[in-house]
Nucleic acid binder design. Sequence first.
DNA 1: CCCATGATACTCT
DNA 2: GAGTATCATGGGG
Length: 203
Amino acid sequence: MARSEVLPRSFFDRPVLDVAPELLGAVVVHGPVALRLTEVEAYDGANDPASHAYRGLTPRTTVMFGPAGHLYVYFTYGMHYCANLVCGPDGTAAAVLLRAGEVVEGLDVARTHRPGVTKDSVLARGPANLVRALGLGPHHNGIDVIGGDVQVRRAAADPGEIRTGPRVGVSTGATRPWRFWIAGDPTVSAYRPGTRKPRSTAR
DNA sequence: CCCATGATACTCT
DNA sequence: GAGTATCATGGGG
C-alpha cells in the first residue's frame, strides 16, 4: 500500500479554490510533529480584498507572489504568526491559510510548544496556535515545502464531511465562502462555526 | 456554554 | 497614525 506521498509542487500550482478543500485531511510535517489539517481558508491576491496581496507587491507579500509550494509566514496583532501555503503560478499571489489541525504525531513535542494547554484538541486550533504547535516561526517564511524542512503528505478528508463558510476575522470580502473545514471535528467546532444567527434588523 | 475586551508591535498609507 | 487573515482571559447564563 502506498505510504503517504509528499504532495508535489503541481498540487499547489493550481487555482487556490481547488487546492484549499483538497488540503483538508492532508498532513503537515515539521520535525517530529505531524498535523492533520481540519480547517483552512483561501486567499486570492488579485481578486480578493481580504488578501494581504490585494494592493500589490510589498516587502511582506513577496513570498505570496512567488512560485507555488512555499510557506508564507506573517506576523499579526503584535504577537502572532500565521502560516500559508502559496498556490498558483509564479507572479500570482494566492495562498491557503492553515487555520486548524489535529496533532497526529509528536504529541509530546507539540505540547511543549504550547505550555499550559491541557486539552490536546486545542493545541492547533486557530492559525497562530497551529504555527506554535508545529514549532514554526518567522524564519520559515519563504521555505520550500517540497523536499524541505516542512512537508505536506497527501491525504483526503471525506468529501461528504467538508463544509464551507465565510472566513474568520476579515472585514472586506467577508461574504465569500472561502473557509473550508471538516464537519464535526473537535479541533474546529468550538471556533466560530459558520452557523451564526444573522441579526435580522438592518443596522 | 457564549460573548466582550485587552494585549501588543509590525506594515502600509 | 490606523488597522490588523488573533489569543487568552474573565464575567454572565
